[in-house]
């Protein structure tokens, strides 16, 4: 026990009570929020093409995405905060992708999974109906190349996104920075 305070001296429990110092963390509310968000990503079950099979494999038995706190695949955009665009986005699908993105509550994140969403992939040259990169439709946080990317790569992308959430907080990429027009 510390000595009794001298009469007239200011009482400062922070300095004087070491137990208190061990039990209090000083931080920003925002940091705590981001920390929580980071470990509870709810991806949307949004399979477009081949990559969706690898997304399923990532969530299934062997790779078990739940270990990284991102395994709760939701069928509704209104319940999810991560859109993994898994597969080729076509011109017919692009408005729907945008609409689903708009339906997701803020803060929200997106991963462009696979070469097709990164920039058109193998279809970039002669695939007249393929959008040459999903970043023309929605803002993208993480680009994940591969055709299709292996589950390990998707797990890595999600880990990278988690670190980014902590670094930048909130919406990692404000939409006005990307200059994306409405689809």
């Amino acid at each position: 026990m510390p000595d009794a305070p001298q009469p007239g001296a200011a009482v400062n429990p922070w300095d004087d009570d070491p137990e208190l110092r061990q039990n209090v963390i000083l931080t920003k509310i925002d940091w705590v929020k981001d920390w929580g968000r980071r470990h509870a990503l709810w991806p949307m079950a949004f399979g477009l093409a081949c990559c969706a099979m690898e997304m399923m494999a990532t969530a299934a038995t062997k790779y078990d995405l739940d270990r990284f706190g991102a395994g709760v695949f939701r069928a509704s955009p209104r319940q999810s905060d991560l859109m993994i665009v898994a597969g080729t986005v076509t011109h017919k699908m692009a408005p729907r992708v945008r609409r689903l993105w708009d339906q997701m509550p803020d803060p929200k994140y997106s991963i462009a999974m696979g070469a097709c969403t990164v920039g058109g992939g193998p279809y970039v040259k002669y695939g007249y109906h393929v959008v040459q990169g999903v970043d023309q439709v929605i803002p993208v946080d993480i680009y994940l190349p591969g055709c299709p990317p292996r589950p390990e790569a998707l797990i890595d992308a999600i880990r990278k996104l988690q670190f980014r959430i902590l670094e930048r907080g909130g919406n990692t990429l404000p939409e006005d920075e990307t200059g994306v027009g409405a689809a």
Binding site: H91, V131, G181
Partner: peptide, 28 residues
């Protein structure tokens, strides 16, 4: 059936040309 209703032309015709953009999304 496959393409959107307002798609220009029929792509597998030999003289079909890729449109410059579709609904604001550019096609290179």
């Amino acid at each position: 059936i496959l393409l959107p209703e307002d798609w220009p032309g029929h792509p597998l015709r030999k003289d079909w040309e890729t449109p410059a953009s579709y609904h604001g999304i550019p096609i290179i």
